[in-house]
């Protein structure tokens, strides 16, 4: 676990889907890193939407200094108690899109 919301996102499904494609080891993990980056952008977008603009700077600074700190989630819940669900939902939708593309490539 490297970021405070990792337990809400999870890359296991994508890892398994990529494993089915049978790619070389390096390609597999490069793609997994890209998927991680996509999810990161999407989740950060949701977080900044629920957080008032005045707090963006403080949050980004704290997130950069302590990415793993679970207190960030506690802090965000003060602004939106349903932030956990929103992050989960965003991650699920993003992963679905990626999986659809993966299926198309598998069929080729």
């Amino acid at each position: 676990m490297s970021v405070f919301y990792d337990h809400l996102v999870g890359l296991d499904e994508l890892h398994n889907e990529l494993a089915d494609v049978g790619l070389p080891f390096k390609d597999h993990y490069d793609l997994l890193n890209q998927a991680d980056s996509i999810l990161h952008n999407e989740v950060l977008n949701v977080i900044l939407i629920i957080l008032p603009v005045d707090y963006h700077e403080q949050f980004l600074k704290g997130f950069n200094e302590r990415p793993q700190d679970h207190q960030h989630l506690v802090y965000l819940r003060q602004f939106d108690p349903g932030i956990d669900t929103k992050i989960q939902e965003t991650a699920r939708k993003t992963k679905e899109k990626i999986k659809e593309d993966l299926k198309k490539v598998k069929k080729k």
Partner: peptide
């Protein structure tokens, strides 16, 4: 597998670029 890797890399790069653009469009001060 090389072709699949290449096509997947292109797809993932497109997704990554889209998510990055969306983030900065929604939050221009970012």
């Amino acid at each position: 597998s090389t072709n699949k890797s290449e096509s997947l890399r292109n797809i993932f790069s497109t997704h990554e670029q889209n998510s990055y653009t969306k983030l900065h469009q929604n939050h221009p001060h970012l």
